[in-house]
Nucleic acid binder design. Structure first.
Ligand code: ZN
Length: 517
DNA sequence: TATGCCGGGAA
DNA sequence: TTCCCGGCATA
């Protein structure tokens, strides 16, 4: 669109339709903003740092990793940012191009919301670290206690696990103190002695359940995220996840679940740090008959898989409409499934059916909960009908516009203008984002989007739309034509008499530039 | 019918 | 590239 518009309007537009015009349109603000944000700022600083981080967490497999000192802690702020960047890096190029094109408009809007967010996430982390460290000190004692109190741990289960999943965080502490390392080592040893399985982390997935859970996370994360393409990681995820998460599943049920989680997390933060330590003991229990399973939280999807990777794939492919390939896992999937403990005995039967193997294949296309705008943000694939505009959200607009223009693939909407809200409150990386959503739905959404890669959004959007639109709409096939915006265009506004007042586009019988839908 | 705008095309 | 317009889709 812009291209076209720009072409057409060229200078005039700028003069006449600076930011203001757009805004008038519908919620377009996002529009301009999006481009800017994404392109410019994002990409800018971030790149390198991310990778390093990832590694650290990933590598962590075992406890050892923690010991390893990565540079991460100290430079956290920047690093975090980078995470998102990773992706961005790739994009940057693209955007840069665009930038040039849109430059005039962009300049104004550019604000780097994304950065802020990232920083935010980062902070969270730090906090955790701090806690963790302390925890470590206590760890030994705790461990001993643990053995005593296995049950408690079990209760914590899923939620905690989530928290635990973050385990990588602890690593960060490294920087903090050497003592920690020692402590860690000691802890580890103790742990090992107690629960062999837990320790396995380094090895494959087969280990004990608890491991699975914790490790699974890591693995999944590492696997999917680490993959070259997506630089996202848990942290990043915060950014991305935020946006994405909210989208589909969040509608209602999901939200609830999330909320719960979030709460759990909070708790975890405070007191849970300890819990996380406990993980070891838990595993034991599970071993016996309990197994950690991953359940899909998507609205009408009961899918339960034995592996995090599996569930992620399932979500990615089925619900998010992405390719089975790990490439783009943003971490978004993580929000759509939860870990659950299951009795192997019982499970064995049911699971055999449900499970794993073919996560992708499962069921019919999910029914989307399209309640929110957010939802829309998600769909994937090609956009059939231009119609879709029904949705009020900025995103929608964006999309639409793009469609018009045909050119710009989708930029993500990162409106991010928002200030970050919850940082302080939220501690845990992953879920924290979820929390964010709740608190600030609108803004948050956008934010999330930011992090996400273009592809994602593009794809995602399409899907939701597809469902929505496609199904109901016959036109899809019709063609490219848009639904025609509701807004009055120059012609109508000024009338034929005052044709000179029309925007150039209107004068030329092109899509109106001044009154965008 | 009035509008909005795509696809062409002339200058 | 700028400016127009035929003609189609839509309201
Ligand atoms: Zn106009």
């Amino acid at each position: 669109m812009h291209l076209a518009c720009l072409k057409m309007t060229s200078k005039r537009l700028l003069d006449k339709n600076p930011a203001g015009v757009r805004g008038s349109g519908a919620g377009n603000i996002g529009y301009g903003g999006n481009y800017c944000t994404k392109h410019s700022e994002h990409s800018s600083a971030k790149t390198g740092g991310v990778i390093t981080r990832k590694k650290s967490p990933v590598t962590v497999n075992g406890i050892d990793t923690q010991i390893v000192d990565t540079c991460s802690l100290q430079e956290p702020s920047k690093e975090t940012c980078p995470n998102g960047n990773h992706l961005a890096s790739g994009r940057e190029k693209h955007y840069t191009k665009k930038k040039t094109i849109y430059a005039s408009e962009e300049d104004q809007r550019e604000v780097g919301p994304g950065e802020v967010l990232k920083c935010r996430s980062f902070t969270h982390r730090l906090v955790l670290n701090g806690q963790r460290q302390e925890d470590h000190m206590q760890v030994e004692s705790i461990i001993s206690l643990r053995s005593m109190l296995p049950l408690c741990v079990s209760d914590v289960s899923a939620e905690e696990i989530y928290a635990s999943s973050h385990i990588p965080v602890p690593r960060n502490r490294k920087p903090s103190g050497h003592a920690d390392k020692e402590v860690m080592a000691a802890t580890v040893l103790t742990t090992l002695s107690t629960s062999p399985l837990v320790l396995n982390p380094s090895s494959g997935a087969s280990g004990g359940v608890s491991e699975t859970s914790s490790r699974g996370w890591k693995e999944s994360l590492s696997a999917s995220y680490s993959s070259s393409t997506s630089g996202n990681w848990s942290w990043d995820a915060s950014d991305q996840s935020v946006p994405s998460t909210p989208s589909p599943p969040l509608s209602n049920d999901v939200n609830k679940s999330f909320l719960i989680y979030s709460q759990g997390e909070d708790n975890i933060e405070e007191g849970e740090s300890t819990h996380f330590l406990f993980e070891d003991p838990i595993p034991r229990k599970r071993k016996n008959s309990m197994k950690v399973m991953f359940k899909c939280l998507w609205k009408n999807c009961e899918k339960v898989l034995s592996t995090s990777s599996g569930i992620q794939r399932h979500i990615r492919t089925i619900h998010l409409g992405r390719n089975g390939d790990s490439d783009y896992s943003d971490g978004e999937e993580d929000f759509y499934y939860s870990e659950i403990e299951v009795n192997m005995d019982t499970l064995s039967e049911g699971l055999s059916n449900l499970t794993p193997t073919s996560p992708t294949t499962t069921g019919p296309p999910p029914v989307f909960p399209l309640t929110n705008d957010m939802v829309q943000s998600k769909s994937a694939t090609v956009i059939h009908s231009p119609l879709s505009q029904s949705a009020p959200s900025t995103l929608c607009h964006i999309r639409t516009d793009h469609a018009y223009q045909a050119t710009a693939p989708v930029s993500i909407p990162t409106v991010s203008s928002e200030p970050l809200h919850n940082h302080s409150a939220i501690s845990v990386s992953w879920q924290s984002p979820s929390i964010i959503f709740k608190s600030q739905p609108g803004a948050v959404t956008h934010v999330g989007i930011l992090s996400t890669g273009e592809k994602r959004q593009t794809v995602t959007h399409a899907v939701s739309k597809t469902h929505t639109t496609t199904i109901s709409t016959p036109k899809a096939s019709t063609g490219t034509r848009k639904p025609r915006g509701e807004a009055k265009k120059c012609r109508k506004v000024y009338g034929m008499e005052k044709k000179d007042l029309w925007c150039t586009a209107c004068r030329w019988k092109k899509a109106c530039q001044r009154f965008t839908d």
